[in-house]
């Protein structure tokens, strides 16, 4: 510092009198560590982040969110060796306590629904036809159906839905013996013949954003 010859030397010198390794932020660090680290991956207020392949959480139904966290925690989801993205998420839930899950569900519930950015451009008409067999569970407007355990799809990241449907079709998701709801969806995913059919149906779901 002695060698500094700028106008601000005096001000700055006052600040560097302590050669401490604890910057202000280090104080009480553990007390403030909690399990609300989700936004690092899922984006600010859970808007989703394509670069991490972590989907939108904002606007997600509490019952569905809770079930997914519990499934990840129990290893029912995100443990198949080829479920690359699920494997990234699974350890994030592995150590959550019941209280923590409840806290997170409440916290995520504070985030407003925002429709995700559209990134795919398939054949909407063909997608509409294909979606008829999905509507019975996910609802005509893809608004979800709690009684059937099928989540809302409208407004979800299209790239994420594509991965999920492909993973269901390949048995990377929904094949675990205890995955009651996932196994239903696994069966339904087979109605989509190929990758293009998946893109088409997701393109149609994109038109249902609230």
């Amino acid at each position: 510092m002695k060698k500094l010859i700028t106008a601000t030397t005096v001000v700055l010198s006052a600040l560097c009198s302590t050669v401490s390794l604890a910057a202000e932020g280090d104080v009480g660090v553990e007390a403030s560590m909690d399990d609300r680290y989700c936004t690092t991956c899922h984006g600010a207020e859970g808007i989703g982040n394509i670069a991490i392949e972590a989907p939108r959480l904002a606007g997600m139904e509490a019952w569905y969110l809770k079930r997914q966290l519990e499934n990840f925690r129990a290893g029912i989801r995100g443990t198949h060796a080829e479920d690359i993205q699920g494997i990234a998420m699974q350890p994030m839930a592995a150590k959550l306590s019941d209280e923590s899950i409840d806290d997170i569900v409440g916290w995520v519930g504070e985030w407003e629904y925002v429709a995700a950015e559209i990134t795919v451009d398939g054949n909407v008409n063909q997608g509409r036809t294909a979606y008829q067999s999905c509507a019975s569970c996910h609802g005509a407007n893809a608004e979800g159906n709690e009684a059937l355990g099928a989540p809302a799809l409208a407004g979800q990241n299209d790239w994420y839905m594509i991965t999920q449907i492909k993973n269901f079709r390949a048995g990377f998701r929904g094949a675990h013996s205890e995955d009651t709801y996932g196994s239903q969806m696994l069966a339904m995913s087979k109605t989509l013949r190929d990758d293009q059919a998946v893109i088409n149906v997701v393109s149609y779901i994109n038109t249902l954003q609230k």
Partner: peptide, 23 residues
């Protein structure tokens, strides 16, 4: 991190910690 704290200590409370940018 001696390098980091050499800067950080001189910058003092110009740094806000646990202040994630959201927009």
């Amino acid at each position: 991190d001696r390098i980091i704290y050499a800067f950080a200590n001189r910058l003092g409370d110009r740094i806000k910690f646990r202040a994630p940018v959201t927009e």
